[in-house]
Design a protein around this nucleic acid. Structure first.
Lengths: 342, 342
DNA sequence: ACTGTTTGTAGGAGCGTTAATACGAAAGTT
DNA sequence: AACTTTCGTATTAACGCTCCTACAAACAGT
């Protein structure tokens, strides 16, 4: 920790007051007269005194820190979430302990342990698996404030997230409304136990009295642009001929777009494309991308508010609440134009 | 911090041993016989004991945590740096305290104070201003381990960074070598006191016996794709007609690319474009982007190694070292083709 | 048998802070 | 004048842990 910093004791010795008086003065207690406070504050700043949060935490039984565990920062949306959460937490006086699980459940579990050992007052977690939440539920059952950053209906854990199913529903309904009947789905999540977007896709079809052909589903086995490129190549190699594609995130969609550019497929004339997240580059792609806007700052704010609320009421936690933010569809050029029905 | 966790005392009472013996046993001291260790470990795990790092930190005078302060996470490269740093630190047993300064010097200063108050063992900082480093130098002078993540030659502070000047030099030399003589420069940094890329740009011209017209310089006043779009529009509205553009990062370059697509300017036929950072989307842009590869994981690794080295030798810090990683130019389609000379 | 060493365990101080309590001195009340 | 109240400050005990030292008991060595 560098050269030992000044302690209350040093300020006390310098001013001739007791440690306790110094402590009270620096915390602006009404029991200390103004003149004394001035003297003590001056001495403290001369000694470059900084309160020791470690000692403070030990006696106060709270660290004013919360743990943030994300899968990774590859997804620009998680990046936004991370930054927004840090900003909100800082504003509320909390320090952010940050970790990525790299989509590894074991690492996630270990980081949770680490943060507990560090006595973080609460945690915000974007879990690797949306269904394997036992280790997180165990926290909550021991009255520990945790908020998930993904939808987790009946998990018994607080959650604040985008309504991904609704977002996917909006996206796919938009395509169906434009006359599309063969809509490819590029989504790596169902294979990882997170079928929200796929559910939205299917529901949109059902609502329109349609049934989607499973031949239209591709698992890109990743969420990068490269994975999207590969998935689109895979899809086009099949017998079925999609007139539109719904990609589970914008990175994938940009890969799809790139594939189309190279293969001479015109967007949206030959194939319409819709992404998810509304990352910055969606607007600045070859063909500006229609996408579902992930309101990262809203989700972040609600999640932070919730975890702070849980911390405040830690001795009798309220029942878990699952908050879903409604996403908006941002229609751009990549899905413009009607398709003849029939 | 949720329900109070079990303490050494609880394990001691459960097993009948003293607190001290339990502490030694759990830390696998050779002074405790194996049978005793087994008994104690079992009791500890039954009680769900987790060592209290706060108390540990107080007595050990080290927190095993380091502060990471970035300007923001808008730039995908900082995102990669953040993630790589966190991974490396975790591997070395450190927890990452994370904060963004939002390019605000005051916030940066406050976060540094916060992290010191929390007794972080060291800090990794991507500073807002590359020249206004007094507050950081003050840390170093008090023997506090800090490593900057930007080049800072004679600042008296350790630094690990990309050699941005060399990267810019490579990029611009490549364009000059292809016959370009009017190369636009879109770079917000010089206005913020960070002229490394501009220096590289100018040096490349000087080395080729050329002098660049200041009319070619545009300050995009931001580093987003939108800023790049605006900057390109500004540049094209001037009298001078560039045949190439060097953008200080890939987001800006993608904005430039988008402007060109809309304005009917062919890339690279009419204008060649080179970016900086090699973000994922550079490869998947309308026209794949020539760019300077920012080796984020290498920089991160060296920075983490350095700060840990400084922590290890904290009572007599070695003289500051300025490590620069040599970047590679990745040539893609956006700068292909020679331009007739003269 | 007598000292010397090793072995297993325990006791106490201290890390820097806060909260509860204690205690003189000054000031107000009756 | 005696009695209570207020005020300013000090003392002490935690918080949970680790280090240093203490100390019996077991085990040598001569």
């Amino acid at each position: 920790m560098g050269k030992p910093l000044a302690r209350l004791k040093d300020v006390a010795e310098k001013t001739g007051f007791s440690i306790n008086t110094v402590s009270l003065a620096l915390r602006d207690s009404p029991r200390i007269p103004p003149e004394t406070k001035v003297i003590i504050r001056e001495a403290a700043s001369e000694l470059n005194y900084l309160p020791n949060y470690v000692a403070k935490s030990l006696v106060n039984q709270e660290t004013k820190s919360i743990g943030l565990i994300l899968t990774d920062l590859e997804n620009p949306i998680l990046t936004h979430v991370a930054q927004a959460i840090e900003n909100h937490l800082a504003k509320a006086g909390y320090t952010t302990l940050f970790a990525t699980s790299n989509n590894n459940l074991e690492v996630e579990t270990r980081m949770i342990e680490t943060f507990r050992a560090r006595r973080a007052d609460g945690m915000l977690i974007f879990p690797t698996h949306h269904r394997r939440l036992d280790h997180i539920r165990a926290l909550r059952q021991r009255n520990y404030p945790v908020v998930l950053l993904v939808g987790a209906g009946d998990s018994g854990i607080d959650a604040v997230s985008m309504n991904e199913q609704l977002g996917a529903h909006k996206a796919v309904s938009h395509l169906i409304g434009n006359g599309h009947r063969a809509i490819g789905l590029i989504d790596p999540a169902p294979a990882l136990g997170n079928a929200e977007k796929k559910e939205g896709y299917l529901q949109a079809h059902a609502d329109a009295g349609l049934v989607a052909d499973p031949e239209l589903f591709v698992d890109p086995k990743g969420h990068s642009a490269e994975a999207g490129y590969w998935a689109m190549a895979t899809l086009m190699a099949r017998d079925i001929r999609p007139t539109a594609v719904f990609a589970a995130n914008d990175s994938l969609a940009l890969g799809v777009l790139r594939y189309c550019a190279q293969a001479g497929i015109r967007v949206p004339a030959d194939i319409a494309i819709v992404g998810f997240d509304n990352i910055e580059f969606a607007e600045f792609a070859v063909t500006p991308l229609t996408t579902v806007d992930y309101n990262a700052s809203r989700v972040s704010q609600l999640a932070v508010e919730r975890v702070i609320e849980l911390i405040r009421r830690r001795d009798e936690l309220p029942p878990p609440r699952n908050t879903q933010v409604t996403p908006d569809l941002v229609v751009r050029e990549s899905s413009a134009g009607l398709r003849g029905l029939g």
